[in-house]
Nucleic acid binder design. Sequence first.
DNA 1: CTGAAAGCGCTAACAC
DNA 2: GTGTTAGCGCTTTCAG
Lengths: 353, 353
Amino acid sequence: MGVLSIVFLGVKNLAVTIEDVAREAGVSITTVSRVVNDNYPVKIETRQRVEEAIKRLNYRPNPIAVSLVRKTTNIIGVIVPGISNMYFSDVVSGIEKYLKEYDYDVFLVSEVKDAKSEKKYVNKFIDRFVDGLIVLDPKTENILSGFYSDVSKRIPLVLVNGYNEGIDLNFVISIQEKGFCEAMEYLINLGHKKIAFVRGEKSYSYDLKENIYKEYMNKIKSPYIIINTDDGNTIEVVKNTENKIAEINDRYRIGRDITAFCACNDLMAFGILNGCSNLGLSVPKDVSVVGFDNIMISEMSNPKLTTVDQNMKTLGKKAAELIVKTIKNENKKPQKVFVDTLLIKRESCALVK
Amino acid sequence: MGVLSIVFLGVKNLAVTIEDVAREAGVSITTVSRVVNDNYPVKIETRQRVEEAIKRLNYRPNPIAVSLVRKTTNIIGVIVPGISNMYFSDVVSGIEKYLKEYDYDVFLVSEVKDAKSEKKYVNKFIDRFVDGLIVLDPKTENILSGFYSDVSKRIPLVLVNGYNEGIDLNFVISIQEKGFCEAMEYLINLGHKKIAFVRGEKSYSYDLKENIYKEYMNKIKSPYIIINTDDGNTIEVVKNTENKIAEINDRYRIGRDITAFCACNDLMAFGILNGCSNLGLSVPKDVSVVGFDNIMISEMSNPKLTTVDQNMKTLGKKAAELIVKTIKNENKKPQKVFVDTLLIKRESCALVK
DNA sequence: CTGAAAGCGCTAACAC
DNA sequence: GTGTTAGCGCTTTCAG
């Protein structure tokens, strides 16, 4: 094919093969393979001839063929609910930075919204022989069903922030409870009792926070006010939440019946900010708002958002470290790595009126 | 392997193969292949037996083996300079949404910063037989060197927003010139003459804007003030720009020597906003700032950012449409699709003092 | 040190 | 309708 390929450009798959190189160098394909992989002794002179042939023909081994026999790819698959939530893109950045140092390629699949498609993509990655798999905010359903336990038997797996009680899998977990408790206590200490909880449709971390919210509301003997925006992981949630605020203002007089909002992520918090602004309400004078995640822009909004820092870069880095360790078989037992969270007090909360 | 695989869980690659299915169903592997792909007549009764065997064994065809012979994957590769710039994540969302309708999987590679690694990933995708490739903000170098021309001969390719004068390749281009001109004119009409231009290290779109900037500055006979932050496509650019503002305040008294900033993207504009705020300067009272992209948060900053809308979702959708069309061979000739841009006037600009 | 040959799991002529 | 077989491009015994 060597020369032909120049002529046939435009036709698919005229790629130079190991056979072309072998012919060009006057050796067997075995020898070519050996110099490419540098895993067997080859006479230096032969090696040179092969290397020249490779250069001359611009040969690149077909990774698909390699994978078929080797069953590895040097690729780490990452599955993300939605890249447009800056929380996730930050975690991913952390993952990528670290993994590139280790010479792994990172392939990303985003917009994975439900348990079924999550499974689908996990399987696709497995079938394509990725060397490891990192799933951000895995669906509780897939954890409880044992799906991920099975997966982890076939392939190194790291889960970031999902249902993990009594689950024996690799996890990197940010201690959301802590930050969220701080947030609730902060609000309560500010004198708030009529606190609304704003969450997205379905996610372990929303449930987790909701439970804590309820505990605190029980403690201060206040009724629950739970507001549900649909998908919480796209940028669209901002608009959705904004609209929700307008809607609920019929039932609950914001500023009176609700004096504070506690949101499951910063995007929702921004929606609340906008929604209140639309109603002519001033934050934090009329209502307090606290977010979660501490995505970068939370310190740039007006007012600057009080929120809980999740340390996304660290989360990503830890996930990357853990997957590498697992691939290298350095941790025999599944491991849970914890990352701290911290309430960041800025401008969006004030004493209740 | 069928039953064995249950026993051997934990060992890699004990996956069920087409042969297992064939044996289980008492047919040849060809027949299994035919029912899997549904591309040849198979007696209904045989088909059922095969389907049952597939279900029983939980067989999934090995896509690597399939790719090796078919040379396709149903995957579209997308290459992005940095996912943490919301501009890119929005474009990607647009791409993904559309492509999923067409049943393509989208694999993303992010953090591709220089021409060399851009090439590397393009080649990796090609070698893995992706059905098409979309590159966001491709490096000028790789376009001028003819690299992408070669690529487009091997595989359907769509470039989004890069150097394209006289380049005969598929492009989706947002008419940045228009929006940027509007921005410059707006500033000038507001009476500004001492306008600083803020750009990132290296990108066609920065160069494009810089040229326009220079033209306008020539026209109003003002000297150039060009500020260079390094990488413009990560969230870090905000901090970097913020620092830069502090630095330059020695040479240029901001508010006097510079009365307006024109930034290459919204992230930089935010950095400027922060930087000015640090210096005790009020935007737009003391300085005006205009951004570019109109990422969602630009309407949530304080002050709300005046910026140029790039219509990222549309950009993504058009790129997806074009790649699908190219794969289907519906456009024989490379095509350029243009997307309009528009100045959005908000709060960050005012009449010069 | 080098090569022949048997696969990896699947598709697609080609026969029957 | 169904099966046989020759690959796809590479790695890896096994001989030599």
